[in-house]
Design a protein around this nucleic acid. Structure first.
Lengths: 221, 221, 221, 221
DNA sequence: TATGAATGAGGCTTCATTCAT
DNA sequence: AATGAATGAAGCCTCATTCAT
């Protein structure tokens, strides 16, 4: 007979395998979504690409929407984590750190960022992932609180313009959002040869906009 | 016997009625698209909302995609016209006019602007409206040419920073794009009470970003 | 005031014009049906090709099916007339005349003949033209009676094989039917360079099959 | 642990079941097509008749047209196989064997034969089954080659009339084609009581037409 | 009287989801 | 536990026919 730890190990092993497969599904879904566009990717295609059966997908996710939601959440978590570190650095005395971290995080993989933008639009109001959407919004509210507090201090120090604090981070968000789309826009993006240089330019604007002039020429990447 | 102009009048009358109906279809489609989201709007729903039969829709548009394309083109034309006037004013000596006109045009109906953003993503690469897409891109290239020329002059005059000219208009485009999304984003937009004031803030950033400091405090609206 | 004959003339004139237009509709429909195939021809297309409004078509024909039925009937009448003359000639002493006349009539415009074959299949069992179908069948029964009587005599004279009389004309019908299809069949027709010579060959078989050898080498065309 | 052959067996089992279902769909489609006519049969009706969901149909066939094409190809293969055997018998010294086999094959199920005739007309030029149509034509070209060679020998031996070889098989094809239609023609077929006897009569004509008199009275069925 | 814009039933097809093996 | 065949709701589009002008 086997020691009790044997079956425990077995279970742990299985769980690991299960999670690894879930990651793989997400990762292949991501690949297809970025490559083919949201509307073109079917559950069948994902299962084929991930090398698992279609039924298996539904062992991991209740609906297709959940897969998409998961991608959005994963991404938001990553952004949040980067932002958190940036905010800490700002609190520790480097005023531009938060903005820098934020743009860095969002512009380093523009394709993914854009996909998530689109997914979020699609998922808005989807009742079947209501709770996940709440989670997303909660995460953001938490970011917002930290940002508001941080920005208030910077305004107090006279570093940032004295407008409602959320104007500052919303403007950053908007600029990042738009930069990513510009990056991929067929009409406008065509003649941008060094796209990454453009993103750098935008990031610089983002980092310095709203402040009173002292913070120019931060290198982002 | 009837005057020759009689039948001509009749035909003209009919044409007018036909075009009016086409406008109505577009207008009701627009309403639904903004209200329910692109994916939720069916041709049936549009016909119901417009108070016409499903078949009638297809007398006016070859496919559903053409309806969407039409919305995008109409909007782009309107933006282009506003921009053109702004560029003329800039050439006539008011440096911020073009940017102001552009932001004014795009931010005055953020719901529509956002819809068109989404539609453009959806239509990208759609073969059935290839020619219409070309038309769109041609319109933009023409805008781009005018902008490049205008911006080059402003750089020469030392008003704008000396970076590749397209950086300037791309940054504007990106900021407008992002501002509109921020406006509607459930997480971030929630606590913006005076949303229009926020758009004004963003527009000001847009108008002044990239220039060397002289042009602050342009009122947009 | 006008003489009474005036309005009568007017009416007669109108009737003539009406009938002429009806002929035109049929003729253009025929053109399209042969050119594009039965399934591809819409009422719209016919009205366009005939240069009349769609509504006008429905002044002449109750349904689209009636147009098709009319084509079938017109054609059958023409065949019947030719056959009648042929039968008379046979009765007058030229044994092969009827068969010759029949093949001549059917093979002289194979495209039309084939179209009518297909139309008849399509119309079979169509309730909306039941009475017209009855008319068609009555016409044929009349032909059949004449043929049976004629063939019986030829059998009596020892010219035709002594099988049930209808075997003879059915075989002719079948051969004509099949020859027309062979004429157009993509696979088999391809390497028939002189198609009309082939039809002549078939006609000769038709004229002589079932008889006891005396009637070879009738020229058909 | 299971033997390796276990899963292999399972897969084989499934494949068999899948193919059996495909056969069933074809068979029920055939039933409806013959019963109701090509134009009246919808994919919905087929799925209902076959006792499967509409979606299942599309697991087996890419489009409705492919179902029809499949029926045509299956039939053509069967005819070809019969003809091949007949040709071999002819080469082995029985001159009428090929014609006999051909008529036998085509006239033994006239309803099916007629359906396939009609289907072929409908499918002609259909781009979505272009490759399948090529296959069909290739099959026929191969038959034609064999027939030409066979007929040339029979002409050399003085058994068949010395006309271009394809006249012989085209005439056979035409006669079979027409006989089948005669069989079903409402007007002409009505008073044929023993239809099969009629087919026998036609077959005899087919087998002997074009030859020089030696081969009468071949029993077909 | 002639017209053609309007209609909507009905056809084909897709794909998220289920469930028997 | 994993699979993928089966399902059918729902979407897009066509075209014969009607009817107001």
């Amino acid at each position: 007979m086997s020691r009790p730890s044997d079956s425990t190990d077995r279970i742990r092993e299985k769980k690991k395998h299960f999670l690894a497969r879930e990651e793989r599904i997400i990762e292949r879904a991501l690949y297809l979504l970025i490559r083919d566009g949201i509307d073109k990717v079917t559950v069948s295609a994902i299962s084929r690409e991930a090398g698992v059966g279609k039924g298996t997908i539904y062992k991991h996710f209740l609906t297709k929407t959940e897969i998409l939601m998961r991608i959005v959440l994963d991404y938001e978590r990553s952004i949040t984590e980067n932002l958190r570190i940036g905010i800490e650095a700002t609190e520790a005395g480097d005023p531009g750190a938060a903005a820098r971290a934020y743009f860095q995080a969002r512009l380093s993989d523009p394709g993914l960022d854009r996909l998530v933008q689109q997914l979020e639009v699609k998922l808005q109001g989807s009742e079947e992932v209501e709770s996940k959407l709440s989670e997303l919004h909660a995460m953001r509210r938490s970011n917002i609180d930290a940002l508001n507090s941080m920005i208030a201090k910077l305004i107090n120090k006279g570093i940032l313009e004295d407008v409602p604090p959320h104007y500052h981070y919303l403007a950053c968000w908007a600029l990042a959002q738009g930069a990513v789309e510009a990056y991929f826009n067929v009409s406008y993006g065509a003649d941008v040869e060094d796209k990454d240089e453009f993103l750098q330019f935008v990031a610089n604007i983002g980092i310095t906009m709203g402040n009173r002039g002292q913070l120019r020429d931060n290198k982002l990447f």
